[in-house]
């Protein structure tokens, strides 16, 4: 079996098997949050892991996806599913427009430009209160899936439904990302990650491929934001904020940004961590900061790759 198919199989088995160990319904909520974060983080694997570019503003695209689901049904009469698509279209268009000039920048300069983009989006969402409801947020219409299932005679709780739905979208997203990895585009991205100059001399259109990675990752973030909005039925500008952008990048890098599974593992750890850290009460932030520092120092490739290396090393002995 190819590693790609193994990854997908492991992922699917985990998603399906986990609920058998859930002590209470609350765990479905955490599971769904993990999957929704994992979708955005999978997009960052394409941007950071494959193409070697950074972004400190991807939460902005999550904000666009989220508010599309809040606003499009009311103002344009679109059903929520179409609103998700509208959100991705808007995010992709914006990423393409802004990506063209700013992807020429490198390292920290690209960091500050994407940071600025994210902050601008969250500022608009917060300030244009007559449209967006302002800092306290806005209600999001029901996806309607639960009602549909009920009419078909299948009663399912909101927690379980969103667990299944977000899990499915995450696996789909991972499948697409893994396919991209093996495609000519994926190979080109990895080549320019290694060295842009070398890639260019080999005839790779560096600018175009970077832009593609940026647009695709923006679409992932947008879908993630849409699902979050539809699940919570309420969305606030926090979804587009700087701390959410940082959280996404941290999940990806902490878990291992080189692989989809690693990044999803990072999303799992960082989503569950605040729930575990409640036992530390007021030391919560200090512990979170320490975890970020220590993992980056001692496991620079991320948690999952380092863990796998350890395991393989033991097998070899």
């Amino acid at each position: 079996m190819k590693p790609k198919h193994l990854s997908l199989l492991v992922l699917t088995l985990l998603v399906v098997a986990a609920p058998f160990f859930f002590p209470s319904g609350f765990y479905y909520r955490i599971g769904a949050l993990i999957f929704i974060n994992a979708i955005a983080v999978t997009g960052l694997v394409i941007l950071i892991g494959y193409a070697g570019q950074i972004s400190l503003g991807h939460a902005g695209f999550a904000g666009i996806g989220a508010y599309a689901c809040a606003l499009a049904p009311e103002h344009l009469g679109l059903p929520p599913v179409a609103a998700i698509l509208l959100g991705t279209a808007l995010s992709a268009a914006l990423a393409w427009l802004v990506g063209k000039p700013i992807l020429r920048l490198h390292g920290y300069y690209l960091g500050v430009a994407t940071l600025g983009l994210g902050i601008l989006i969250s500022m608009v969402l917060s300030n244009e209160a007559q449209w967006t409801g302002g800092p306290d947020g806005i209600a999001v219409p029901d996806l309607g899936l639960r009602g549909l299932l009920r009419d078909l005679g299948w009663r399912i709780g909101a927690g379980e439904l969103w667990y299944g739905l977000a899990g499915t979208v995450m696996i789909l997203g991972a499948w697409l990302a893994l396919n991209l990895f093996d495609s000519p585009t994926g190979r080109a991205l990895r080549a320019l990650h290694g060295s842009e100059v070398a890639a260019r001399t080999m005839g790779i259109d560096v600018a175009r491929h970077k832009l593609h990675a940026f647009v695709v990752s923006a679409v992932y973030a947008s879908v993630s934001g849409s699902l979050l909005a539809l699940m919570n039925r309420l969305i606030t500008p926090d979804v587009a904020g700087f701390m959410h952008s940082v959280q996404m990048v941290t999940m990806a890098v902490l878990g291992g940004v080189g692989s989809v599974l690693g990044a999803i593992f990072g999303a799992t750890i960082l989503t569950a961590l605040p729930q575990l850290l409640t036992v530390f009460h007021q030391y919560e932030h200090m512990v979170l900061g320490l975890v970020m520092i220590l993992v980056m120092i001692f496991l620079p490739d991320g948690l999952l790759p380092s863990l796998m290396k350890r395991l393989r090393g033991r097998d070899g002995e």
């Binding site: 390292g107 890098v253 940004v257 932030h285 900061g289 980056m296």
Partner: peptide
């Protein structure tokens, strides 16, 4: 963390900021 990539360094210093903020609180 010498020689770590830019993203890792960003995460380390943001982690340090979160730690210092918690400690100051």
């Amino acid at each position: 963390a010498r020689g770590a990539p830019v993203v890792s360094l960003i995460i380390i210093t943001i982690g340090a900021a979160i730690f210092l903020q918690g400690a100051a609180g």
